[in-house]
Design a protein around this nucleic acid. Structure first.
Lengths: 193, 193
DNA sequence: ACAAGAATTGAACGCTTGTTCATATACTCT
DNA sequence: AGAGTATATGAACAAGCGTTCAATTCTTGT
């Protein structure tokens, strides 16, 4: 047997990626088998290898595309440091609430990347952190912010904002706008001069 | 063949747990095999089952003991809310910097727990969060703190503090005392009235 | 010196893993 | 209608998985 009917041609690739994303996020890369992914797509395991050279690349491509998009989709606007920081925080939360599974994988599965892949992903992640750190450093020099340490504040703020994905559930007590506003308020005060 | 020589009796159990801890933290529960753990201990795989009923229990016991100890080891001191919050923050950082691998596992491997085990661990984790939330709620009512939302602030602060484990390395630019002080300063400002 | 029990081995169990490949089907183009 | 190609199957591969267990060795108490 081969193709059952209809033209699954251009849809199978994306569907494999979607299934991998969902399953990796739910059970973890190492705990998910190629056969599980195939079953989710409605295809035999062998067919996956028409769309990805191997399991590792499936993971790497998800993470790489995620970070490429995160970096390409948004840039620090002109303006005073506080406005830049607010834009960063609000964008970060919005972006992360929109893609919980990708964000989760990009953080949790780092250790399952082969060394060369890990190096690439880490570089991209670092580029993103540097944007926040630049904002903080500017504000520190201009006197808008008061911080004991720029790098530490960068890590602290990112950890705090990204943490929203651990508890936020759609349709809960707070809207996305509420969450954005509350987090921004805390960050604003934390770095205030 | 059996025991080679000497009395490995009482030391093998702990050594298995230590090896499991290290390997789980490094590669993830699902990616580590019982044979790998055994090799690390210098024993055959079958011998592990004299000390644990199965692999799952090995993970569960690590997490359970970690949280039991975290909860038993420290309690909120009497005093004004700000002093309580400072004590919580400093203790959290100190405790987490002392046990990076346990902390990492307790967060990363939640999804690899079987449902009943997960429920127990989640309950313990929740108990810990509730301590911070109680401090924040008290301070809110007394007017010492200004917060839009107590639960959200709890999650934000814990995420921020726990994040220290993602970047702190022994012998780096900042001492533990520095880190403690800087984080506390940011938390203090973030919740300030 | 010897028996009892604790600690460990090493082989085996059935199953799953990622990956490959000859084969077969469905679609497209002429 | 028929050839050519893209897409998929399903069986096979060697390797590794968690776990069990009879057999073996070491330690301890008498």
């Amino acid at each position: 047997m081969a193709r059952k009917q209809g033209s699954h041609a251009e849809t199978t690739g994306p569907r494999i990626r979607e299934a991998a994303l969902r399953l990796f996020a739910q059970h973890g890369y190492a705990a998910v088998s190629m056969r599980q992914i195939a079953r989710e797509v409605g295809v035999q395991a062998g067919a996956l290898y028409l769309y990805t050279p191997d399991k590792q690349t499936l993971l790497y491509d998800l993470m790489r595309d995620h970070l490429d998009h995160l970096l390409g989709h948004w840039h620090v606007p002109d303006g005073p440091p506080e406005a830049q920081l607010e834009a960063f925080c609000r964008h970060h939360i919005r972006y992360h609430l929109d893609r919980p599974e990708l964000v989760f994988i990009a953080y949790m599965e780092l250790r399952n990347l082969e060394p060369e892949n890990f190096a690439v992903i880490e570089r991209l992640r670092r580029r993103y952190e540097d944007r926040l750190q630049a904002i903080l450093t500017n504000g520190l020099e201009s006197g808008d912010f008061a911080l004991a340490d720029g790098k530490l504040a960068t890590m602290a703020i990112i950890a705090m904002l990204t943490g929203v994905n651990t508890w936020y559930r759609e349709g809960g007590r707070l809207s996305r706008a509420d969450v954005e506003a509350i987090y921004w308020d805390m960050v604003r005060k934390a770095v205030a001069a």
